[in-house]
Every structure is written in structure tokens, then in C-alpha cells.
């Protein structure tokens, strides 16, 4: 089933606009490789796009690591977005639809959460932010 498909973890630095595009492309490749449905691929790539942009704009850049995960019953794609930026002072507020400090629509973090199966944010003031998302195949 995995013949010919490289499922090793992959990393992508996020330092520019073009890197956000590269993250999208990387996530799509892996999502296709683990055979997520088209809708799930689309949701995961969209969430990754939002989170990579957050890493760039709010975190001042960072990186994304894409891993294939397996819980024994099904496979999935896990992406960790990490930056060493200022951190998120009020996470509940940041997860509210429409809240933004960056002039966007305020749907990045809250919207991305709705598009994935698992969503974890670890953040500390002055130390950066780490967002881990997972989408499982059905």
C-alpha cells in the first residue's frame, strides 16, 4: 500500500509568502499519499494555509513539519507549526471567530480548528507558539 510513496516526516521553513504556498503543496502531497478523501484533503490544505500564514505574520516566521500518523486502525496527517514569536496572550480570544490583531478576517485560527480532527495550541508569552493539527482518514 505504501509502495513507492515516501511517507517520512517532511519539514518546510516558513519565512515568506512563497513558503506558505510550499506548505500547502507539501501538505497536499502527503494528504494524497495517505489517501484522505478529496474533501478532507481540501479541508486540511486550507487549514494548513491559514496556520502557515499565522506562523509567518504573527510568529514572524517558523516552520511546518508534516508527519504521517497511524493509530492502528487508520492513518492520518499531522502538521506542527512552530514559531518563536511573541506567543498568543489570550488564546480564548484568539480562537474567537472574527477576532484579529492583524487586519485579517479573524477566521484563521478558529476556522482552521473546525477543519481538522485534532487541534492543539501551545503558547507562552515571549516564547512562541506551536499549533498541532491532525486529520484522520475515514
Amino acid at each position: 500500500m505504501t509502495a513507492g510513496v515516501d511517507l517520512s516526516p517532511k519539514a518546510q521553513a516558513i519565512g515568506s509568502d512563497e513558503d506558505v504556498v510550499r506548505v500547502r503543496q507539501l501538505v497536499r502531497t502527503v494528504a494524497v499519499a495517505v489517501k484522505l478523501s478529496l474533501v478532507d484533503q481540501t479541508k486540511l490544505v486550507t487549514a494548513a494555509s491559514e496556520l502557515a500564514r499565522n506562523t509567518l505574520i504573527y510568529g514572524g516566521g517558523g516552520n511546518a513539519e508534516v508527519t504521517v500518523v497511524d493509530d492502528g486502525r487508520r492513518r492520518g496527517v499531522r502538521i506542527v507549526f512552530a514559531d518563536s514569536g511573541p506567543g498568543i496572550p489570550d488564546l480564548d480570544l484568539a480562537l474567537t471567530d472574527g477576532y484579529t490583531t492583524g487586519g485579517g478576517l479573524g477566521l484563521g485560527l478558529s476556522g482552521a480548528r473546525r477543519l481538522v480532527d485534532e487541534f492543539i495550541v501551545e503558547t507562552a508569552a515571549g516564547k512562541g507558539t506551536r499549533v498541532t493539527v491532525t486529520k484522520w482518514s475515514r
Binding site: 474533501v39 479541508k43 491559514e50 473546525r114 477543519l115
Partner: peptide
């Protein structure tokens, strides 16, 4: 617009 894109957009909240 592709169907999967439409579904995702709505869920995203756009």
C-alpha cells in the same frame, strides 16, 4: 468553484 472548496469555505466560516 469545486464542491470540496465550497464545503470547506462554509466550514471555515467564510
Amino acid at each position: 468553484m469545486r464542491p470540496a472548496v465550497a464545503i470547506t469555505l462554509v466550514e471555515l466560516g467564510l
